[in-house]
Design a protein around this nucleic acid. Sequence first.
DNA 1: CTGAAAGCGCTAACAA
DNA 2: TTGTTAGCGCTTTCAG
Lengths: 341, 341
Amino acid sequence: MALTMKRRPVSIADVARTARVSTTTVSRVLNRVPTVDEENRRRVLEAMRTLKYRPNPSAQRLAAGKSNTIGLIIPRYEGIFHSYFALQAIKGIGMAAERLRFDLLLHITDGKTAPTAPAVDGLIFLDVYGCEELVDRALDDGMPAVVLNHYLEDLPVNCVGIDNRTGAERVVDYLAKLGHREIATITGDLKTQAGLDRLDGFIKAMKARQLSVKDEYIRHADFGLPSARQAMEALLKLAHRPTAVFVASDDMALEAINVALAKRVRVPEELSVVGFDDNPVAAQARIALTTVRQPLDEMGRLGMEILLQQIRGKKKTPTKLLLPTALVERQSCRQTWLDPH
Amino acid sequence: MALTMKRRPVSIADVARTARVSTTTVSRVLNRVPTVDEENRRRVLEAMRTLKYRPNPSAQRLAAGKSNTIGLIIPRYEGIFHSYFALQAIKGIGMAAERLRFDLLLHITDGKTAPTAPAVDGLIFLDVYGCEELVDRALDDGMPAVVLNHYLEDLPVNCVGIDNRTGAERVVDYLAKLGHREIATITGDLKTQAGLDRLDGFIKAMKARQLSVKDEYIRHADFGLPSARQAMEALLKLAHRPTAVFVASDDMALEAINVALAKRVRVPEELSVVGFDDNPVAAQARIALTTVRQPLDEMGRLGMEILLQQIRGKKKTPTKLLLPTALVERQSCRQTWLDPH
DNA sequence: CTGAAAGCGCTAACAA
DNA sequence: TTGTTAGCGCTTTCAG
């Protein structure tokens, strides 16, 4: 046997010949067309197996006139590569793509380039930051697209975001139920939608419950650890300390707890802390963090599904989704009226 | 103008007609074949622009007989979706793919399925964990492949890993130079290559410097925070405490520092701590962590390049790479002979 | 330096 | 239910 022989790959014609049917019939069983005689189907399937036949996607796409491919656009800014969110969303997208039998073309972009038709049937933006121009272009080209993690109010494009406002409101409700009235917040970067909406939701919920929102209880941070540290230190220096703090991310919340503990402020006995994200570290922390869970992989899954609907022409008007969050109760909060000792 | 008119996409023939040349010539300028008259090239380019021509990759691949696509295989185990490593590697792979004009087909696998020829020209495994069978299969099929983040000693497959052993040795060297002799380590999961090699490197370097490696100074953890906490607590309870600890990951090192601080052990005055990974949180921490940097995105880049060499037939024997690490000196270590006060 | 023509492997009318 | 046939858009001999 000439092991080095370069054998021509087996094609649909080879299968047809072996199974003693036409290529059309082979194509039919390939595409699960029901009108195929059971005996023929069996023979085709067997021929495929013995010949180790693999359909050539390029030929399929060319003949069918569709790429069956989605471009997954990842903005190149550094932040996204440090985020828990990105991988979870990719996971959701990837698994949905497999289920829907679509290929995923990964494209890390500088904001200038993105795949176009006929290379892809649609685009899924992991985030819009740095990609505004590309989203516009996709819209102009009539290329189906969906933006994740960002609710674009004014643009006629599919969006799947997280309901950060309601998430923050849940936190206030929860803390209020525990008897807290002096509730502070450490915000995220207010240039981001998540940062802004979490603060908005917080303030709105406080007011709805007639709780005062003191200026000194609103400390601005930027999702970075050093900023969270400063914010917490400022809070602890206050003559009248809050009894609870809502922190806009788990990373910052954990850091805030560290600052508190270092200053001999016990958590949760003297200070309740709530985070946001449900990052895995929140559950693993010394004081397991009460936080807000976001359905990140589901965000990816839904993004794929919505995109597919648009591609299939089933949806004409853009779908705008804000996914619900859930409060995850752990060990970092306590009722105020309990004796701390 | 019939805006709703579904116009047939512009093809190479349209460009040829507009530029008054043959499709062959258009194909030539598309593929940067040098033997094209300058005037013709100009006209073709212009026609492409005015017609907004986009080559159809499926047709190109079918005609050329190659997919120009690499399958990026991401094992589905949960850990990988929480790792700093994965996104960095993806970034490196993605940017290299773009530069090399290769498409990336993203595939999240359960360990059973992976793209095959002729869908892809090669496979790049983000890690081997859970994919052993797929790697074997690729090898059997003669499908070019490269495994990242894991050095497979015995398998004839391209590998690009991190030199964890030498990284750990660097840490010992550094601590020894600072005067430390009582050095402990908190290991990672010894079922992983990283965990094992970091411990091996540690022990080897200690012995090379004639430093004693007490059993009680080797505490086994699993990269998880709770295990790191326990390990650190055990270390601090020792009658004869180490003056320095090498922790097998940044996450665990930070947690260890928290434990120390909570027990009023000052870092770095009373205890030096070194991590591994150079996770961004290490730099941001309260006590900026001295750690070992790994070139993760370069790992991705090199993986792509090696794979391409194999695909192009330029390399016959598997390439095995162990990428060098670098010690990043920050604030978590101190010379032993300095007065701590 | 250029173009005619033969496919690449598959799908989809259409006819049987 | 099946097969014939004509492409899908591009690359690549090969002859000029």
